[in-house]
Amino acid sequence: MTSKIYQKNATIIDNFRINGGYYKLILATPEIADRIIPGQFVHIRINDKTDPLLRRPFSVHRVIKNKGKFNKGQIEILYGIVGRGTEILSKVSPKKKLDILGPLGNGFKIGSEYSTHILIAGGMGVAPLMFLAERLSKAKAKNPKQKIVVLIGAQTKRKIFCEKEFKKLGCDIRISTDDGSNGFKGRVTSQLTQILPLFKNQASMIYACGPEAMHRALALIARQNNIRAQISLETYMACGFGVCMGCTTNTSGGYKLVCKDGPVFDANDIVWPQN
């Protein structure tokens, strides 16, 4: 099924540096803000030049819904400078417009039948999970027995984001850093293994976004513990809407497109490349 995709010139409300060398981009785009779900992404044309040529995909960090004439829907994007595209983007000033396509792809499936939701963020992977936590906490308001646990892993303290925001939503939050400067010292997946016994007798669902190594480790842990895990993959893309066939990933059901069949997949379905 192809659902409606919008191509819009979205006004930049703000685009600013936060800590850890990361940035926040806020765009006014009511059609997309009203429809996008956690884990879906938008495809942004950084400028109107031919270099860099391709759009850049970004997951949505938060959504401010459309509330009429003076309160237009907005989306918030959390990004880091990973290459030339994001470097150019970081210098674009507010009030300018960006050509944006979205909502794209398939987002996280919220398992309302699960009592414990475990969110696992590696580095920038926290970006789509904030949006997911907001939706989960709304579901939790109706069903207070539900628990939202958030594990955030990063290289160092400075690169931990959204701790306060997750707390505000009533999430049980655990931090891990590679250098031990905050919370558990080690990988976020090691911390997961450590705390999993706490949720042994509860129906749990894992939602994760992070680097490939984290996804691989997580897929294994999920399988060993018989827990379902959804992971949001990241890859190079050209079109972003299922036409160019460029962003293929291998799954147990054959090649799938990250842009259209994903970016969220069941961790169990992914066939990881051999290194």
Partner: peptide, 20 residues
Amino acid sequence: RQGNLPPRIAETPSGMLNSI
């Protein structure tokens, strides 16, 4: 046809490479 192994695309200056 299953097509080629990923990665299948790469951006280049004002262009892109593909091997779908």
